[in-house]
Amino acid sequence: MFIEARITERIRSGRGITTLLFDRPMEAKAGQIVMVWIPGVDEIPMALSHISGVASITVKEVGQATKALSALNVGDLVGLRGPYGNSWDLTPRRILAVGGGVGMSPIMTAVEAVNDRSRVDVAIGARDAGEIIFEERARKASDDVRVSTDDGSYGIKGTVVSLADAMMREKRYDMVLGCGPEIMNKYLLKACNENKVPCQLSLERIMKCGTGLCGSCVIDGLRVCVEGPIFTGEQISRMTEFGKCKRDDAGLKVKI
């Protein structure tokens, strides 16, 4: 579905990270994505960062489209198409949710959707303190929230994968949820395998149609916009392209 929505609130969530709330709700499940049209600029895929009540996205500035999106003001217009893709399976009993940087966006909706503080723990990580987002929101929804930064400027010093690894050694989990840069996902998968905890990871590829037609978002033939964005550890272990290469706008393989 395509809707025209206006921004009702703009929150600075971290350095270069902005949350935009919309005047239109969106029937979606935690982990699903939307195609966000910035009129005159571009249309890009984004995870929903709020799904109950209002809809929102949380944007990290990396290039032209994300900069333009982050610069929009209250009252400005965007087009929203979706929701697309699958959602987190939140049925396992004890869950560890791991978010790297803006990857916390779809992780946060999962943590809130569990709706039981004792069932879900959270590991939040980023390069430095400025990019840690949603810590307060997470503490409202979980009894055990831990934070790490690569440079030690806030929380434990180290990567969020080593934090998650330590939590898996300390406590028993039935499922790990992860979202972050592909390199983080790669090492998180390795840590989950070593600790024998199954996982679901949210992956990214170039998206154009969002509806399963154009094939630009495929990883080994699986479409991020339909079969994904969330894939199980088993699915990912069978992928030959994960962590190694992705397709560019022309469909050519490029190294990650």
Binding site: W37, D42, E43, I44, G79, K208, C214, D249, A250, G251
Partner: peptide, 23 residues
């Protein structure tokens, strides 16, 4: 590369696409 996004519009009974022959 094909055209920049938006390259597709979803309608109740179909799509309009202008992918621009990426490949």
């Amino acid at each position: 590369k094909g055209y920049p996004n938006p390259t597709l519009v979803e309608l109740p009974d179909g799509y309009i696409n202008a992918m621009g022959l990426p490949g």
